Amino acid sequence: MATDRLDLRDLPPSQRHETIHAAFDDLDAGEELTIVNDHDPQPLFYEFRAERDAFDAEGYVVEQRGPEEFVATLPKK
């Protein structure tokens, strides 16, 4: 399974969701996007679950690795 990775911590917040959506759209079915963020991306999970039919919500994983390091995996069906 191929994985793309984005570290969003240096990207302005106003550009993050647009960047994530574009990267997710570029994935093929069965691939996943891993993002590194400075806060819990739970709102992004709900956004993807509501708006992206190709998002595999059951396979979503998020791990807090530090006070400002959250790593989330967004799989594509």
Rank of each mutant, 00 (worst) to 15 (best):
Q15P: 03
F45Q: 00
Q42I: 03
T73W: 06
P67A: 15
H39W: 02
E51S: 08
D56K: 03
H39S: 03
V61L: 13
E69N: 09
A22S: 11
E69Q: 14
E68N: 13
D28C: 11
E18G: 12
F55I: 04
I35H: 15
R52L: 04
T34N: 11
P13T: 05
P41N: 08
A23H: 07
D25I: 02
R16N: 02
G66Q: 05
P75E: 10
E18V: 08
R65V: 09
R16T: 09
S14G: 10
F55S: 04
V62C: 12
E32I: 00
I35W: 14
Q42G: 00
D26T: 11
E69Y: 06
F70R: 08
V71N: 04
L44T: 06
T19P: 04
T34C: 14
Y46W: 12
D56Y: 06
A54Q: 08
T19V: 11
A23S: 13
D25L: 07
H21I: 02
E31W: 10
L44C: 00
A23T: 02
F45H: 06
P12A: 14
E51P: 01
K77Q: 14
I20N: 14
V71F: 01
G59S: 08
D53E: 10
F55K: 03
F45I: 01
D26S: 15
F45T: 02
R52E: 14
F48Y: 14
F55H: 03
R49D: 12
L44H: 00
A72D: 07
D40Y: 01
E18R: 15
I20C: 08
P13V: 13
V71L: 03
R65Y: 11
G66P: 02
H39R: 06
F70D: 04
P12I: 14
A23P: 03
R65S: 10
D53F: 01
V36C: 03
T34F: 11
A23D: 02
H21E: 12
Q15M: 13
Q42W: 12
